[in-house]
Design a protein around this nucleic acid. Sequence first.
DNA 1: GTGAAAGCGCTAACAC
DNA 2: GTGTTAGCGCTTTCAC
Lengths: 338, 338
Amino acid sequence: MQTKRLTIYDIAKATNVSYASVSRAISGRPGISQKTREYILETCEKLGYTANITARTLAGGQSKLIGFVVSGMDNPFMGELSSQAEIYAREKGYNLILCNSMAQNKHETELVSILINRKVDGVIIVPVNSNSYTALEKYLSQIPIVFIGDNLPEKTYTHVSVDNYLGAFIGTEYLVSLGHSSILYFGNRPQSFTHRNRSAGYIAACKKHKLQPAIIDNMSSTSSIENGYMLAKKNFSADMPYTAVFAATDTMAIGAIQAADEKKIRIPCDLSVLGFDNISISRLSRINLTTIEQPLDKLVISAIDLILQLVHDSEPERENIIIQPNLIIRGTCAIPQK
Amino acid sequence: MQTKRLTIYDIAKATNVSYASVSRAISGRPGISQKTREYILETCEKLGYTANITARTLAGGQSKLIGFVVSGMDNPFMGELSSQAEIYAREKGYNLILCNSMAQNKHETELVSILINRKVDGVIIVPVNSNSYTALEKYLSQIPIVFIGDNLPEKTYTHVSVDNYLGAFIGTEYLVSLGHSSILYFGNRPQSFTHRNRSAGYIAACKKHKLQPAIIDNMSSTSSIENGYMLAKKNFSADMPYTAVFAATDTMAIGAIQAADEKKIRIPCDLSVLGFDNISISRLSRINLTTIEQPLDKLVISAIDLILQLVHDSEPERENIIIQPNLIIRGTCAIPQK
DNA sequence: GTGAAAGCGCTAACAC
DNA sequence: GTGTTAGCGCTTTCAC
């Protein structure tokens, strides 16, 4: 039973007004009296009419579609992020097209192009690395883009991020407060602005406390647990000169813990480990990772709010939003044993 | 610089053919000579024309959009599933609209309705529970739907799933082969067909080996780690009459392990724990969960292939696909200590 | 095999 | 405030 779908025209007939008035009523645009608008909307409700989004989009209206491009799913943080975004976007009447750039700038660019072709109203993107910004610059005039991740130092893109610098600073100071004086920063991805800001925060805190910074870079394109494990396996040893490791991400921390376990380095007795992100795995009692939290809900709400402002106003109140990170104390950091 | 986008009309002018011929050429439909088709396609390529999907959809074509409805993101399995699906769908020229039903039938129904309104070509859905099938029945005539999860016993919906019955059977037999004779099945959700088939497999294996089945149900709507932990906390004790626990999902197993740790029940010495799913967390060395794997890639590929068959043929070769589960032996199961 | 023309259901100018 | 009308870019009969 394929019932013919109701159109704006059916509503016009039923209410004895014109075609256009119905359009005005349902799209919430002005140029119609409050009374007739209410009457029309009531009738829509009664007859079970819902607008055809495809037609609306083609005619120049909005698609109520947002593209959400993540750089990968190795990090469970991304899954939670996209799902939260979908739920919040839906509350606002939008749906999400999910895309995975698989940590490649090439795919990222292609995906944004596809999304524009699909007439999404805006795209939220977790950039692959610092190259993403310049690579996507050409699209900035075509569609609102909000970046989840840190901003370029020299230019201003609309973005929302946790204060990565501050987070790393707080984390380092926490380790110092426990008595650590030789802290390794582990898994820095020099290609990523987010990472650069984090390591800068670490270095600043070291300077403040007259400590010697030490950084091990992660030269692969993602911060997966696997990569953290490999990197730690290669670099960690029982006689390391460090009493604490500040990992660039929780996944790197968890990989490092795995390697430390294998090398019989006890955590936190022999080595304190601090993460960054607070992914759901870190809560597990067997991991119990002390970490710097990126408040997921705030990140998501800000990103969606920002993109919707851009979509509607085209002149948002704020160009970017910085969220305060929190220290989550669990069980992987302790006072160093001499 | 907002350059005017090329339309089918521009291509028609450039090639000196009609409007309609261009449409035939790009949509791959018959009624056009091979020669002119190639010429038109070349010109499209040269001029950088890409079809407007919105217009195509409105005019009755396909949207090249697939709805993907998951029941929640508590289980990291879902994140991996949706991302894999997106990547594979994209290879086939489709994009994914991600939706989270938040384990509620109400949302699930609403979401499918939204997706239909969006003119998606098909929807893949991880059903909330057994009610989902009947609740969504009314949409079956309107749009192809593929379920990821077990089928109703009495009716046939198009679905792909791992052989849950077999998986549970294999798992139980593995525990028996280690020497366990009192095995608890933990976290069964009676509302879910997937779960019902799993517990049935467990019961069948028990019968075969003349063991007494014992099942603890999970009456909440999701199989989160948190729910597994709570349930185990309430039900586990050092003097339990069981030497092994077969958890309905990895998440339930991990929650159970957490509770066991707290109660000083050692795994696997005091208690063997077996999971089902093989989520990424289970690989972590500190979890190292022995489990029955649901091959994610096969699940995804089958689901996408199936929905695309439905979209194109409307008469697929197979109504449903059953995938073989694998036993993944890690460290949480051992020979029982007397 | 090819072209002309009528929609798909809506938005947005423009009249009244 | 309300109605009329011309598209948005494509698919799909229907002639030729």
